[in-house]
């Protein structure tokens, strides 16, 4: 099969060409170090983008805007409960998963029971989650347990540990999407919910599981990001809202739903990190950086969109 027909190829082409620019400016060894940094930070983008991708694939109007608030609430509660104690690592993780499950179920309840469109439902529920986080700890930054910080920032050679873990998760999710009943149900619902329903696919159960999975992944991302950056902060999730959507779209997943791929998420996550790094390296002022970031994202989406 022709490679140019793969929807994820454009994100990877963009990543490679930007990396070449950086390496030609700063040299090969700096280029390698930048790649390590890109893998460290791209990992967090991929983790939330996997969930967002499944939600977007459910079809038009499906998107989870509560990802930043979910990350903040889950990590705030976990850090305070663990309070730096390594014995609490597992309970802390279980709490994070439980918060993810609750948030996902609550989001879906708003969407299905109250018939609120997902954009409005998840946007308004995120106020509840963020307010809960503020009420719970008033923005105080509690240090993560040392073992969590070490794992989150740890490396084997030049490859971050967390990147390996998320890479394994990506492969698993690739399998889930294309080879399991659940994954194929998501694609079918996204392509035509009515046809999927008539074919006997439990449409609402599929949507429910997808929203829950997205929230759980966001919560887990918050847990590790807090470990990575020295604690949870109220504004820690802010950039993950736009980023989770950008990574999904640039990665070649159809905004209209029904078509998704996982390799593109990694390509797009590395692309977004390297793009900002390149513009910083070139020393452009913030205004030009933002204009170029926007223009390049539009260009990548336009080029990759032509093929579909």
């Amino acid at each position: 099969m022709n490679l140019t027909e793969k929807p994820w190829i454009w994100a990877w082409l963009g990543t490679v060409s930007i990396w070449l620019v950086i390496a030609s400016i700063s040299g090969l060894s700096a280029g390698t170090e930048v790649l390590t940094a890109a893998a460290s930070f791209g990992t967090f983008f991929v983790l939330v983008a996997i969930g967002q991708m499944f939600v977007v694939t459910l079809g038009p109007g499906n998107v989870d805007l509560s990802i930043p608030a979910c990350m903040t609430l889950a990590s705030t509660v976990a850090m305070k409960v663990m309070n730096g104690s390594e014995a609490m690592l597992i309970p802390g993780f279980l709490i994070v998963v439980a918060i993810g499950l609750t948030i996902g179920a609550f989001n879906f309840a708003l969407i299905i029971l109250l018939r609120i469109p997902p954009i409005i439902a998840t946007l308004s529920s995120s106020f509840l989650y963020l307010s809960t986080a503020i009420w719970y700890n008033r923005g105080l930054r509690v240090k993560p347990p040392e073992a969590l910080a070490e794992f989150a920032t740890g490396k084997i050679g030049v490859v971050p540990l967390l990147a390996i873990a998320v890479l394994i998760l990506t492969v698993l999710m690739h399998f889930v999407l294309h080879r399991t009943y659940f994954g194929r149900s998501i694609l079918a619902v996204g392509q035509n919910a009515k046809a999927a329903h008539l074919a006997g696919i439990p449409v609402e159960r599929t949507r429910f599981l997808t929203y829950v999975m997205c929230a759980v992944l966001a919560a887990i991302c918050g847990y590790f990001l807090a470990g990575f950056s020295g604690g949870a902060a109220l504004n820690m999730g802010e950039e993950y809202l736009l980023m989770s959507i950008a990574v999904v779209v640039i990665g070649g997943t159809s905004v209209a739903g029904g078509f998704a791929n996982l390799p593109g998420l990694w390509g797009a996550a590395l692309f977004m990190f390297l793009l900002v790094t390149m513009l910083n390296t070139l020393g452009l002022s913030a205004g030009y950086r933002l204009i170029l970031t926007g223009a390049i994202i539009v260009a990548v989406i336009a080029i990759s969109g032509k093929k579909r």
Partner: peptide, 19 residues
């Protein structure tokens, strides 16, 4: 730009530092 947030600053500095 670190956006006055530790994690954003950490990411931006890690990116530019090698160059």
């Amino acid at each position: 730009h670190g956006d006055w947030a530790q994690d954003v600053a950490q990411k931006a500095v890690a990116g530019i530092l090698p160059s």
